[in-house]
């Protein structure tokens, strides 16, 4: 069985730190890959450029996507990914500080599977990460391969 790979696309290093800190505390399994802007995210997900080799850069089991990203926004990443790879329906969790209705609607319209706002307190964040782990890793099933 292939290792569980979580792809985190997030530009704010503090948020990356807090999330990884919480994941560690929660015992998040598998490997974790972090990308720091939208363009990089698109390239990885579509297997373009430096990420063409899928054995080295395999499709993740779960994507955690920030919306407010440099170069390309999270919504652009999501839209492009869902449009160019319609068969590779990897679950996408939008993880953002935006509470805007527009962002929520767009995210779901472009194919997000979940929309979470970033809690400010580490305790609350830990609670969210634990819930994610329970739902997406413990109970949710994904195919062995998206190909």
């Amino acid at each position: 069985m292939r290792e569980f790979l979580t792809l985190l696309i997030e530009d704010d290093e503090n948020d990356v730190f807090f999330l990884e800190h919480a994941m560690r505390k929660a015992g998040w399994p598998g490997a974790m890959k972090v990308l720091r802007d939208g363009a990089e995210g698109i390239a990885y997900l579509t297997g373009a450029g430096a990420f063409a080799d899928r054995t080295e850069h395999p499709l993740p089991s779960l994507i955690i996507l920030d919306l407010n990203l440099p170069v390309k926004t999270g919504l652009e990443v999501l839209q492009l990914f869902r449009n160019t790879e319609p068969d590779k329906v990897v679950p996408v969790i939008v993880f953002t500080s935006s509470t805007s209705d527009i962002d929520m609607r767009d995210a779901y319209r472009f194919g997000a599977n979940c929309y979470l706002t970033k809690p400010s307190h580490p305790d609350a964040l830990l609670e969210v990460v634990q819930a994610l782990k329970t739902h997406w890793i413990r109970y949710n099933q994904t195919p062995t391969s998206w190909e």
């Binding site: 704010d12 948020d15 807090f18 407010n68 400010s120 580490p122 305790d123």
Partner: peptide
């Protein structure tokens, strides 16, 4: 103003987060 308020939350979250981790 929305984006200012919004962007202010990110550093604040960092402050809160680090303070909480420090405390705990």
């Amino acid at each position: 103003s929305y984006s200012i308020a919004h962007d202010m939350r990110a550093p604040l979250r960092a402050m809160q987060g680090f303070a909480a981790i420090l405390e705990q």
